[in-house]
Design a protein around this nucleic acid. Structure first.
Length: 188
DNA sequence: CCCTAGATTTACT
DNA sequence: GTAAATCTAGGGC
């Protein structure tokens, strides 16, 4: 498990540091795992694209709480997205959106959950990986620094190149390059 | 490859 | 009422 302190620094730095880490998910006795390949940082008052920008609500309240906690939200009437609360101790709110993983173990169950065969389309988007790993509102508020059905551990050695880009699907604050990606497969 | 429409909860105007 | 931290199927090029 990654310790609580890992998440207790600037959200943008945590987003970068999470690349290459491993997500462990246990479903009905089967262990699924994957390496984080894409993340996005969402902050507080200085970030108009963040859910926590305006004020605390029933949905975003964990972003204002303890770090290392799962923030799962439902959007577009269809999809769940998985975030990890992370912020500097002096900041009120922040979280890192997990946008993509490279599947390791339990690929068969992910394919079953996704009703898709190809590896390329399995977990290459925030709502896709949430569906593949069966992450829903039930995981809202879960402590990811403790061993349970869902937690984060050390992963692979981080590749040298981190791609910084504008975040996806937002309208405001496109000037902030808080989308981070690594390539661990050849074709990328 | 590109584009478009539709799925329909939550939060804010 | 409308837009949103999205994805899919279907049609055209």
């Amino acid at each position: 498990m990654l310790p609580r302190e890992f998440y207790s620094k600037d959200t943008v730095n945590v987003a970068k540091d999470l690349l290459g880490k491993r997500i462990i998910r246990k479903i009905r006795g089967v262990e699924l795992s994957g390496i984080i390949t894409e993340t996005e940082a969402y902050k507080h008052k200085d970030d108009p694209a963040s859910h926590a920008f305006t004020k605390i609500t029933e949905r975003n309240k964990v972003m204002f709480g303890e770090v290392g906690i799962a923030y799962v939200y439902f959007t577009y009437g269809m999809h769940y997205c998985f975030n990890i609360v992370a912020k500097h101790p002096k900041t009120a709110a922040g979280a890192v959106l997990i946008r993509g993983i490279e599947p390791e173990r339990g690929i068969e169950m992910m394919q079953k959950n996704r009703k898709r065969i190809t590896l390329e389309n399995l977990t290459d988007g925030p709502a896709k990986l949430a569906q593949a790993l069966e992450i829903t509102k039930k995981q809202y508020g879960l402590d990811l620094t403790k061993k349970s059905d869902l937690y984060i551990t050390e992963g692979i050695e981080k590749p040298k190149g981190i791609d910084a880009a504008s975040r996806i699907g937002i309208r405001d604050a496109k000037d902030k390059l808080w989308n981070f990606k690594i390539k661990i497969r050849k074709e990328g």
